[in-house]
């Protein structure tokens, strides 16, 4: 499904090189994420490192379908939450304690997990988009972003309406087929938000 799947296989098999590659690619992201809640760079980096270590230690139990980044971010989230709880209980009432409480509440929000999952799809959709032919990308953006009709795009680019329609329909198909897990609902999704104008 994505470039981390093979990495995930290698890491599960115990490849330190694969783990290092994954660590290098994702460490800054994880530390950034943790720091947004913990609000202490040194602590955030510690928690991020511990999270990677925890992933490495439990590598044999990683599910092949599991996206590694989602996995490490989820570990990091739980660890950041534990850390914040500790700050709240030690420093409740102080500015630091109150801030820790505010951020611990956000981390417990179901949306955090959803957004972590969303990163994977976002990554995939952006790949598909970036690999469309330039003309199709342009037409797609004019249609979805600028809200131009097929006829308006055709006039603007000096092509026929059929050509515009063909490109946009194929772009939609590319998105749809890139997401095999999502069935009919994705069609609704596309038609709701990207429906013909």
């Amino acid at each position: 499904m994505n470039d981390l799947t093979t990495l995930s296989d290698a890491i599960r098999a115990g490849s330190e090189a694969a783990f290092e590659a994954f660590f290098r690619a994702e460490f800054r992201n994880v530390a950034f994420f943790v720091n947004r809640y913990v609000r202490d760079e040194v602590q955030a980096e510690d928690i991020a490192q511990e999270s990677f270590l925890a992933l490495w230690k439990s590598r044999e139990r990683i599910d092949a379908q599991q996206n590694l980044r989602n996995y490490v971010l989820t570990i990091a989230r739980n660890r950041a939450l534990n850390y914040l709880r500790d700050v709240v209980s030690r420093k409740g009432g102080t500015l630091e304690g109150r801030e820790a409480d505010i951020h611990a509440r956000i981390l417990q929000h179901p949306e955090v997990e959803q957004r972590i999952e969303a990163l994977e799809t976002e990554q995939m959709l952006s790949r598909v988009f970036r690999s469309l032919p330039e003309k199709a990308r342009e037409m797609f953006l004019l249609n979805r972003e600028e809200g131009l009709t097929y006829a308006e795009i055709a006039r603007k680019l000096g092509v026929s309406v059929k050509v515009v329609e063909y490109n946009i329909v194929l772009a939609l198909k590319a998105f749809r087929r890139a997401i095999p897990k999502v069935s009919g609902i994705f069609l609704v999704f596309l038609s709701l938000f990207f429906g013909n104008r």
Binding site: R127, V128, S131, P133, A174, R176, R177, A178
Partner: peptide, 13 residues
């Protein structure tokens, strides 16, 4: 991915 999705011609990245 694009080939799998049936996109014709060369893909530019």
């Amino acid at each position: 991915r694009l080939a799998a999705a049936g996109w014709p011609g060369e893909a530019s990245g």
